[in-house]
Amino acid sequence: MTDASKPMTDPPSEPAPSRGQWADVWDQFKVHRGAFWGMVVFGTILFLIVVGPFIYWNDPQAVPTGRDFLNLRDMRPIYVLLWDSGAKVNWLYPLGTDNLGRDTLGRLLLGGRVSIAVGITAMLLSLFLGTFIGVLAGYFRRLDGVLMRLTNLFLALPLLPLLLVAVLLFRDPLSKGFGPEGGTFILIVTLVGVTSWMQTARIVRGDVLALKEREFVLAARSIGTSPTQMILRHILPNVLSPIMVSATLGIATAIITESALSFLGFGFPPDFPTWGKLLFDAVDRMALYPERVLWPGLLISLTVLAVNYVGDGLRDALDPRIRGR
């Protein structure tokens, strides 16, 4: 018997009835070292990108004018002074400036907003779609055929023409309804979400197919648990691990895909920074200005790592077999 069905089969043995399940989960979660540091890092990044642009003194979009332009462009980060005292730096621009004299730190902060928002939202959408379709297909045999055919169709569609069509059909209506930025955001999130759920769906379905033949499911069914109850209480908690992995990988994919979209001209206006785009633009000058690839690359990696550890912690905390070990 797995513990997932314990509360139902054996309620009186619960030691502290006043404590809910979620309190246990939280207890477990907060002592998970990885999860704790993941939360700290992710929280810091969130704080920086939300509050940062308000308190930071340089306008990330401003291009210096006139004679300032040549003085202020291609500035190095101040830490370069440690090994190269002749470097072109300015204390007002801690991470230097790009080839048009725009402040790098400011652009990283502003760019993070979009990258994180798109990354998280698109990941959630893709996860929701994938899990929903995967569970339905795995659990209900009648739906399996049709849903898997749909999955195959989406796997087979060529991404680029699909994006072109979506932009053609939905860009103008969306920007009318939600404003240019809002419309673009919805379009990007939907596009990334709708084109990346298939792997999750296939994985979840595979696991569900195996799970529903397990004894505890049989036991639950024999006491008359409804399919909805069954899915929410018995199936879902047991497919959480692959979903968590998909979530972590999904964020990275979404952040990178967003930059590919803007590069193709489907995304935010070309002068609007995002981490993916900052990284892409800097690749040509990687040897001259390593900081321009280092920082966006580092921020994307840190975000993904942090989410990964939070996911690990969550998974451990939600698994009653590990909880309290």
Partner: peptide, 19 residues
Amino acid sequence: GTFVTMIGFSVPPFFSGVL
């Protein structure tokens, strides 16, 4: 392993390839 694989996955090939 976690550290390396996560960074490996977050770094897009347009960057890692050129690197």
